[in-house]
Structures are given as C-alpha cells and as structure tokens.
Design a protein around this nucleic acid. Structure first.
Length: 564
RNA sequence: GCGCCUGUAGCUCAGUCGGAUAGAGCAACGGCCUUCUAAGCCGUAGGUCCCGGGUUCGAAUCCCUGCAGGCGCGCCA
C-alpha cells in the first residue's frame, strides 16, 4: 500500500480537491513528532474564506481513522497525519521481502530504449580521474534506467579518429617496440606519442609524415589499418581492466571512426534543407537570433568534417538503429554550447525527435595543483588512484578483520567504492576538487561507510542463522526502527527521482540515510539477544535494511561485500 | 562584450519545484568497546543561506539589479 496516496485519497474526500493536485501538496514534516504527512491549509484560506488553523481543525476533526492511520492533529494551519507504526512496518517489510533484489524496481519504462553516451575515451590516452565522472554517472544511470524497466544502450563513443593516429604510426615505426607496447599498454603508447611531439618540435617534416600516415588509414591501406586497429586493441584492453573493476559493460563501441563514412550524408541533408551557408570558405549553420548562439561549423574550408558533423551523424544513426525513446549524452558542462547546437541543428533538419536528446552535464574535476592537463603533467591516472585507495582499504582490513578470506578482492571493492561514492555523492553540476584526504577518508558519508553498514547487517543475519517466518510488526514501533522503516519505504521514490532527473546522487543519499538510520538502530537496540518476538521483528528489519542498501549500492555501481 | 552554470557552517554538500525552529558529513573538542563488525554511536561548538530590492499569509527556494567564481563563444574534441 502507498500510504501517501491513501492519505491523499482520504483528504480528497474531505476537501473536494482531486488526488493528483493534492498529492504534491502533501509533505513530510521536518520533525518526526509532527507526524508522517502534513497538509498545509494556507492555500485554502482564500477560497474557503476561513483562517488556516480553522480549516486544519475542521479537516482533522473529520478525518477517518482507517487504513493504517493512527491519529490526525491540527497544528498551526497544518493537518498532521500520524500513520499506524505497525501498519507501516508490515507493509514496508513485506514488500522488501517479496521484491528482494528488485525492491525499488518497476516496469514504468515499458522496455523503451534509452541510448546513453558515456565514458567515451580517447584511444592511446590513459584513463585519468577526469574520465571518472562520465563513466561512473553513465554507468549508474544505465543501471537505474534498467531497474525501472527501460532498455538502456550503453555507448562508448570512442575518440578513435584524427591525425594523432598518423603520429602514432610514425612514432611506432621509428621508435616503437612491439613487445614493449604489448607489455606496457597505453603508457608505452603515450611515451612514443610524447616523443613524437618532442622530435616534431625540432623537425617539422615529421608532422607531414604523420599527416600522410593518417591519410593511409583513411584510404584503407592494410598495413596502416592493422596498426590503427592494434592501437585500439591495446587501449581497450588496458581500459577494459578499469571497466572490469567498475563492473561496467558497453553495448556499443561505435566511435568516431565508425561514423567516418556516414558524414557525407549529413552534409547532403543539411545542404538540401538549405541550412548550409558558406562563410569565409567554411560551411556553417546559422541559428535564429532568439537562440543567442554563434553559428556552428559543419565543414572546414579544406572539406574536412568536424566534431559536430560526426555527432549529427551519430544522432541520426542512433535514432534509426535503436529507435530511442531518449538519448542521453553524459558529458562535462564545458560542452554545453556544443550540445545546444547539436540538438538545435537536428531539430532544424526536421527531426522532431531532437527533443528526446538530452545533455546530462556534470562539473569539472581539478586537482590541488590546478586544472587537469596531460601536457603539463597535472594528471592523476585512475589506475594509481584505485591502487592507493585499495591499499588503504587493505591496511584497514588487516587491522580490523585479519581473518577475512578474500582480503584483496574486498579491499578493491572498498577502495573503488570510496572513489565511486565520491563522484556520486553530490549533484552532477558541482565541480570536484580532487583531494587525497577526502578520497582516502573512509568515515562518515562515504562508500565504505555504506558498505560497512551492509556487512554489519549481513553479520547479524549470519549469526541469527534463520530468518523468522512470523513477525509481530508491533515490535517495531520504537523511534529508531520507525525512522529506518520510513527511509526504506521512501527508497523506491528516490530511485524514480534519480531517473527523472538523471541524478544518481539521489540514490546515493537515500542509501546513506538508510545506513545512518540502521547504525543508530543497531546501536540503540539489541537484536540477537532480544526476547524472541522482538528478535524476530528486528531481524526482519535488519534484512530489509540489508536488502535496500544492497539494491541502492548496485544502482550506483558499488559492490556490497558481505564481510569486511 | 555575449551566453550558460555555481554561490548555504572553517571544508565538502543536502534542503523533497514556496511551508513549521535551515540539516548531514569532514575537520575541532568531549564521551561510549567483558554484549550482535568502533570503517560505528552520542554530545559540544560552528549560519548575514553572497549583497540589495520585489512578489505574498510565508522566500535559502520564484522575479529583477549587482558582486564573486567557473565554463564556453568558426576551421580542436
């Protein structure tokens, strides 16, 4: 049963206001002793020509005490509704128990396809913390949408085209060592790439050579293509290790090179719709004055296409190939203008589904030394951060639970959990200033805290050995149990909000609050050595908390170890 | 110059699209392990919700002006 809806229905009968308009007006009071739901009567004052406290008093006096409603009070213009603790406990715990790992899930998506462009790494460039946000937000949204019945399509739009591949070929042929690259991976590729730049400073002819080498890739020269593919394989193999650690899989790796032969069509179409204008030798699309947007360049003076040309081609391809209901781009806010232009151009081309594309923007990551910059050495490789966090977790495990069997595995889950949590703990738009202190702090509102709480609940259940078949839910009327139950009951709504706003942090917060409430409950109330009836009820609550935390952690892409 | 975004405790952030006395965590200080995992719990202290106007029963929240910071603004992605 949905208590909020039920309250709205009863209120509707008393006020004559229909349920849909009533529902958003009902709020949760700031303090628990003010009840479970509150209905402010101020907005009714004008139409009813009565003072809000009088109206509240009237409604409260006529409120029927049924369907789990214990009592109703009128306090300074509010109607405060108190739910029956036993009923709330029963309904909530039963629905968690029956849904299990699907608690919070729904079929509201009805199998509709949602494309998600995230992570989208560059070939031959190492994965650094700047790539983490897109990867982790995208992955979480992938799970959230899937959980709510959509069919997500995870797309890693690879940056696998451009003259840098010509440079890599030249560099490899001059100074490369196949075995060293096979062994060293991306870091080795980066080394020869950096060397190319150093040498090219002295000898500009190298740049011409690189351009020629890239031309060979474009022309389909077998040797060049083989090398090109090899660079990609090396990169994906390396980056794949990070995706494995994060538990990420993609449905498509179609990147820039994939769209290479699909761009002429875009230019043709733009031309036919009369949108293309020649300006200073280049072809551009101009926007109406009201858009306040500079024109966007679609084809360079030398005939070459650009980033946005590829993105238009990709948008068309995705619509035709997946027939998406929504198409999300999880990309930093630096590219706000780019996506505004992209969506507008696609709309101007006459595709009404342009409205279904959305830029899921997020803030920038900087480190203490300043903005990230590979060239000036201000980088933090994700691999290194993972390792350091895992090491810290391992130290703590050695200290706190030296008997744990799979220490390394759990340490990695905790270290990575800390990092992922850090990325998903605030709204997307906030900039992140990376700090080792914060990353390696596993106390308070952190990933390890939530994981710890989950493991703690698991430990209690393990010692109990069996879950009770019969539960007297009246045993869960104390404040600590009730606070926890209400947060568990609110979890499905949090998942829906996270989806509607493309904001994984909403789930992060919900999980954190449940963990906090469970820890308070755990500290204040004995579970295993309570009297049988109480013990049974508290075990059932422990299991519900355990399950909900596990589901929430899954949705934000964090592992939930049973021991730590 | 134009456009977008951000501004809440020393720091990192919430604040359920206008509601009741603005909440958490970190850091600081003080307590709690012979009892279910102390990666935990409790307490103390910490606020000009950037400034100023406006809208109304009521504003951290909505509107306007300003200030500060970030990002972007044609041949990169």
């Amino acid at each position: 049963m949905n208590f909020k809806r039920n309250t709205a229905e009863l209120l509707s009968a008393l006020t004559g206001i229909d349920v849909p308009t009533l529902l958003p007006l009902i709020e949760v009071p700031p303090k628990r002793d003010m009840g479970d739901f509150a209905f402010p009567c101020f907005s009714l004052a004008k139409t009813l020509r009565k003072a809000p406290p009088v109206i509240a008093q009237d409604i409260a006096g006529r409120f029927p005490l049924q369907d789990g409603i214990a009592r109703v009070e009128a306090v300074s213009g509010y109607v405060n509704v108190f739910l029956d603790a036993e009923a709330v406990a029963r309904e909530t715990l039963r629905s968690v128990a029956s849904a299990g790992s699907r608690y919070g899930a729904s079929d509201e998506g009805q199998g509709r396809v949602v494309c998600m462009d995230y992570s989208s790494i560059n070939i031959a460039k190492p994965f650094h913390i700047g790539h983490l946000s897109s990867t982790v937000i995208g992955h979480s949204l992938y799970r959230i949408y899937g959980f709510l019945g959509y069919k997500p399509i995870g797309i890693n739009h690879l940056g696998d085209w451009g003259t840098q591949f010509g440079k890599l070929i030249v560099a490899f042929q001059r100074w490369g060592d196949k075995d060293a690259i096979e062994a060293g991976g991306i870091k080795e590729l980066l080394t020869i790439y950096v060397r190319f730049h150093d040498e090219a400073e002295k000898d500009d002819a190298l740049n011409d050579e690189a351009r020629a080498a890239f031309k060979r890739i474009e022309d389909g020269d077998p040797e060049a293509l083989t090398l090109f593919q090899w660079f990609k394989d090396i990169t994906l193999r390396d980056v794949g290790k990070i995706y494995d650690v994060l538990g990420i899989v993609f449905d498509s790796y179609a990147g820039e090179s994939f769209y290479n032969d699909k761009m002429d069509r875009v230019v043709d179409e733009l031309e036919k719709s009369g949108l293309l204008v020649l300006d200073q030798g280049a072809w551009v699309v101009n926007f109406p004055e009201k858009d306040h947007m500079p024109p966007c360049l679609v084809r360079k003076a030398d005939g070459a296409s650009l980033y946005i040309t590829r993105d238009i081609a990709a948008a068309l391809y995705r619509k035709e190939h997946y027939d998406f209901y929504k198409s999300l781009y999880i990309v930093a806010y630096q590219q706000n203008l780019h996506f505004k232009q992209l969506f507008r151009v696609v709309g101007m081309m006459g595709y009404d589904w342009a409205k279904d594309m959305e830029h899921v923007a997020f803030g920038m990551v900087s480190i203490e030394e300043g903005t990230l910059s590979t060239r000036s050495g201000r980088v933090l490789f994700l691999q290194d951060v993972f390792e350091k966090a895992t090491e810290k977790a391992l130290e703590l495990i050695e200290e706190k639970s030296p008997d744990l069997e799979n220490k390394r595995e759990v340490a990695a889950q905790i270290g990575v959990g800390a990092l992922v949590y850090g990325t998903l703990s605030a709204s997307r738009i906030k900039d992140i200033n990376f700090s080792w202190d914060r990353t390696l702090n596993f106390e308070g509102e952190t990933g390890p805290y939530c994981q710890y709480t989950h493991a703690r609940a698991c430990s209690v259940l393990r010692k109990a050995e069996t879950l009770p078949a019969e539960v007297d839910y009246a045993e869960l009327s104390d404040d600590y149990a009730q606070a926890l139950i209400k947060l568990i009951a609110a979890f499905p709504e949090a998942v829906q909000r996270a989806c509607a706003e493309n904001e994984p942090f909403v789930v992060t917060r919900a999980v954190t609050e449940i963990a906090q409430a469970y820890n308070k409950f755990y500290f204040e109330q004995r579970i295993l050595d309570a009297p049988p009836s109480t013990r049974a009820a508290r075990l059932a609550l422990t299991d519900a908390a355990r399950q909900t935390i596990a589901n929430g952690l899954y949705l934000i892409g964090i592992a939930a170890p049973e021991r730590m």
